[in-house]
Nucleic acid binder design. Structure first.
Lengths: 339, 339
DNA sequence: AGGGCATTTCAAAGCGCTTTGGCTGCTTTC
DNA sequence: GAAAGCAGCCAAAGCGCTTTGAAATGCCCT
């Protein structure tokens, strides 16, 4: 059932039918009703390819998926996706993933935009002065950044959590508990979220006259193994930190293992606060010692990104508004006062 | 730069240019070269929307993403996706995710197919007599199932790992080590993979005159927490199993925690073999006691699915060939002989 | 009665590609 | 030397929608 058939059936022109269906004002209410009715009854759905060709609108949002032999997609992505899906479902929005490795990333963005494959796209895990943001900004397609970049000479719309604030608060708590040597086990420090987190820790220490020693900082891709290595090297040193802030629950698994391997204990010998993105499959309260966390649901962020993307597509939102979400500090058994 | 402009520039008809570009034979080699050259020089890329409208081919593969308040996307998905991306990248294949909750799942499949949004799709995490498979089969779009269903009265193409064989071998090893009471901590048993795994355990026990006691079986969504609960209830019982086969690394985290909480030890009091889908962020060799596993990279499966999907789209593959991959049994410190 | 105007409808021209069917010349065949 | 075959090219007709520009209709007003 296509437009032609439907309009013939109604003895109306394609124009009128099309307009009736798309809510244009120059159609009488009666006609509109008649058309809507018939459309529903015959299960008419406009062919998206045709519509796209005619309008240039795709009805999809895009994401350039980083892949490649050396690249592992983060499990965070799956939670973000859940959120995105929560919104997209029910809004007739599909998501197009265009896999690309680092070398062809720019080409891929250009292709996706030039082909009008999607109406908007989002960018995640931004780095400093992220080239993707500059590119997409310049290409003029609606977009939202999940996270923030720095050192870009223009504003752009984003949603991010208050990483600096979260890690500041966590660290301040440690300081209040009397800890002097605080360590940071961070994610990949080419990512801005890691930069912000480090800044938060530094700032909190600084405001008590303490400093974040470079030798107390580790940063790496957030796996259990890297968490283990980082914790071990931190804790085996002469003036080991007595408290650690860690960027991810997966890394924290490694931290816990390292602490145990060294015959130390949490929180007896070392206090631990981890960031928690709220994974259904791994919860901080279920760690051997329940983990204190800075918590922020990455799934909610996904839903919000989808929502704003939809708003931008339909012109309800524009400008470069950045949105920064506060982060909860949840205290559990993994922290104690310094001895 | 579109076809019209390009052909005008070359003083050829659109027909000829189009044919030259798409490798049709009725174009002289010289003309083809000339066209190809000009196309490359001017960076001509056919508009996919137009092409799609004309051919009905989308150049994309689809996946209906289960979402909904009660649904969590599995972290396995992210690894599968990595594999899919590995192949898709470099083959100009994009992936369309259409989020749908259980209620609108069927509608969504129908929509995606009717709209010709994608050329092929894949289905994962199949259940017994999976309705999605029947539906997609009937709709006549190329597809591949990742996993297998049972109780369907037709054949279909799939790729799956030998879940039964893997768990059979794991269990047989336990039996050979003298274990009489083997427990199974399985994933959601409405999924066929879980059914196959249980079957593997049963069969191995049966062939030594033993039986898999229903009270030694647990099954739930594969989270750390569920692993903990399952292990606890298994191990606190009177005739607790002395060996456990577990369906996932995330669950195994919980098992390990439960064992510790109960003041037991691995492998002293209980031996453990887990299935390992090969996640970059969590490795069995880095468990407190290195975990023996049945290992199969879900990422490779993703790549293979993409490859076969591409083959089916271009008509290089058809029929209902199922592919079953053997699974490695990797022995590490988590198993010991029964006392 | 006729002009002005708003409302409602329509025919037709795109959107940019593929593909059908046909038209040239040129070579082959008997 | 005419018939047949073929390689190479083209014009035009789709694909199914949106949108432009114009026409028809009905109403009010002078």
């Amino acid at each position: 059932m296509n437009l032609k058939q439907l309009s013939k059936m109604l003895e109306l022109s394609q124009t009128t039918v099309s307009r009736a269906l798309n809510g244009y004002p120059e159609v009488s209410e009666e006609t509109r009703r008649r058309v809507m009715d018939a459309a529903k009854r015959h299960g008419y759905r406009p062919n998206p390819s045709a519509r796209r060709l005619a309008t240039g609108k795709a009805g999809m949002i895009g994401y350039v998926l980083p892949t490649g032999a050396a690249v592992d997609i983060d499990p965070h992505f799956v939670e973000f996706l859940s959120g995105l899906g929560d919104y997209a479902r029910g809004h007739e929005l599909d998501l197009v993933l265009s896999p690309a490795d680092a070398a062809e990333e720019e080409t891929t963005y250009r292709r996706v935009v030039a082909n009008k494959q999607v109406d908007a796209l989002y960018i995640s895990a931004p780095r400093r002065a992220d080239r993707r943001i500059a590119l997409v900004h310049q290409l003029g397609i609606p977009f939202i950044v999940h996270g923030r970049s720095e050192g870009l000479d223009f504003d752009y719309p984003f949603i991010d959590i208050d990483n600096e604030g979260a890690f500041h608060d966590a660290t301040r708590l440690f300081v209040q508990l009397g800890h002097k040597r605080v360590g940071l086990i961070n994610g990949d420090d080419t990512q801005t979220f890691a930069i912000f987190r480090e800044r938060g820790v530094s700032r909190a220490l600084a405001s008590s006259g303490l400093a974040l020693e470079p030798r107390h900082v580790r940063s790496a891709v957030m796996t259990e193994e890297n968490g283990y290595r980082a914790a071990r090297s931190l804790l085996e040193a002469a003036d080991a930190p007595t408290a650690i802030v860690c960027s991810s629950l997966h890394m924290s698994l490694g931290v816990v293992r390292a602490v145990r391997d060294l015959n130390l204990s949490i929180p007896g010998d070392v206090s631990l606060i981890s960031h928690d993105d709220v994974f259904p499959w791994l919860k901080p309260e279920n760690f051997p010692v329940p983990l204190s966390t800075t918590r922020s649901s990455i799934r909610s962020a996904g839903a919000r990104v989808a929502e704003r993307l939809a708003a931008r597509i339909s012109g309800l939102e524009d400008g470069a508004r950045g949105e920064v979400w506060p982060v909860d500090l949840v205290v559990r058994g993994s922290i104690a006062g310094a001895r």
